[in-house]
């Protein structure tokens, strides 16, 4: 004989509550999170600073100010992270940057 359901539970619509729970399944999911990748541009002896700025504006749609800031990071620190996200999109960015002879690579964030 089934155990009696406590009366306080019966006051709730259980189907409705189950639907709400399914909206956040990742909380209990066993699946690993998708890795995050970053597009990095390294300093090189070939390209002019103004050229690198133009390429950043063109490919990422940065303002002149942001593009110059990123270009200076490359020049002074040897590298700059230009973009972060999913691998597939990152690969496209790397290929576009390489199409302008910029030394770009995709790296996974640990």
């Amino acid at each position: 004989m089934p155990a009696a359901i406590p009366t306080f539970i019966q006051r709730y619509n259980q189907h409705q509550l189950a639907e709400v729970a399914l909206e956040n399944p990742e909380i209990f999911s066993d699946q690993a999170e998708e890795p995050i990748w970053q597009v990095i541009v390294y300093d090189d002896p070939i390209n002019l600073m103004s050229y690198v700025t133009m390429v950043f504006e063109k490919i990422f749609g940065f303002s002149r100010e942001t593009a110059e800031k990123k270009m200076l990071e490359v020049h002074e620190q040897g590298r700059s992270i230009l973009w972060t996200g999913a691998r597939e999109e990152g690969e496209l960015y790397v290929e576009k940057l390489q199409g302008y002879l910029l030394m770009a690579a995709l790296e996974q964030i640990a």
């Binding site: 990095i40 090189d44 002879l101 030394m103 690579a105 790296e107």
Partner: peptide
């Protein structure tokens, strides 16, 4: 050109 780009790429996964 390939060598120039691969300088940085090969630092990662060889499959890459």
């Amino acid at each position: 050109i390939d060598d120039y780009f691969l300088q940085k790429i090969t630092k990662q996964d060889p499959l890459f």
